[in-house]
């Protein structure tokens, strides 16, 4: 019976997916299996997004459906540390910039792609990135920014990572409204990405095995 939830979620059938989980739970189906099915469904969503069959709204909506499913499953799940097969990524919107839509999409796509994402939020000071890299041992850092002021904040953040002696330990990717190759060169980042899928591909290339 497991294929059904995978299909409901990957086809964005919110009502059907939630109803399926509800009746499965009442029939005594293992919630861990349901969670695994949901994860498979999300993988398909990610794949469809990568193949440009799905777009940003589909991603966001699938995330909402997943949230609903997890909320129903949570009381039935044993508290175990979620296993993430891929590596850790530290991400945030750089100092002075409070935009989060683009960053949140990247966080979401990295998450459904199996990365362990540490989201530092918005207007993140350079030293907070440095501290998070040290504490988490993360090998990939994502810097987001929408405004031209972010060019300098990104450069300052990368300089701070250098000064802390961590530059050779991490790969750094940047992204956001006006970011291009010229900005990448200026900031000293390793790469820039135009959309959430680009971020996933960069991270996979670096630490995805």
């Amino acid at each position: 019976m497991s294929g059904e939830l995978v299909k409901f979620l990957s086809d964005l059938k919110e009502h059907e997916a939630l109803q399926f989980v509800e009746s499965a739970l009442s029939e005594g189906v293992d919630p861990g299996t349901l969670l695994e099915d949901a994860r498979q469904g999300m993988n398909i969503v990610g794949k469809r997004f990568a193949e440009e069959e799905y777009f940003i709204p589909d991603l966001i909506f699938s995330g909402e459906i997943l949230k609903g499913i997890v909320k129903m499953l949570e009381p039935h799940l044993k508290k175990t540390k979620e296993h993430k097969p891929m590596g850790k990524v530290v991400i945030g919107t750089v100092a002075g910039d409070i935009h989060d839509i683009g960053k949140d999409l990247v966080v979401f796509m990295l998450d459904v792609s199996g990365f362990d994402v540490l989201d530092l939020g918005i207007d993140v000071p350079a030293q907070k990135f440095v501290g998070a890299i040290k504490d988490s041992g993360s090998k990939v850092v994502g810097l987001s920014g929408f405004l031209t002021l972010a060019f300098d904040s990104m450069k300052e953040t990368i300089d701070a990572i250098k000064q802390a002696g961590l530059r050779n330990d991490v790969k750094i990717m940047i992204g956001g409204g006006q970011i291009d190759e010229q900005v990448r060169g200026y900031t000293g980042a390793d790469a820039y990405g135009r959309d959430a899928m680009a971020a996933v591909n960069l991270a996979k290339g670096w630490i995805g095995g």
Binding site: T148, F151, Q178, I179, D180, Q182, V183, G185, Y186
Partner: peptide, 9 residues
């Protein structure tokens, strides 16, 4: 003409 070019070019 892009913002990045105006600032960094």
């Amino acid at each position: 003409v892009s913002s990045s070019m105006l600032k960094l070019g």
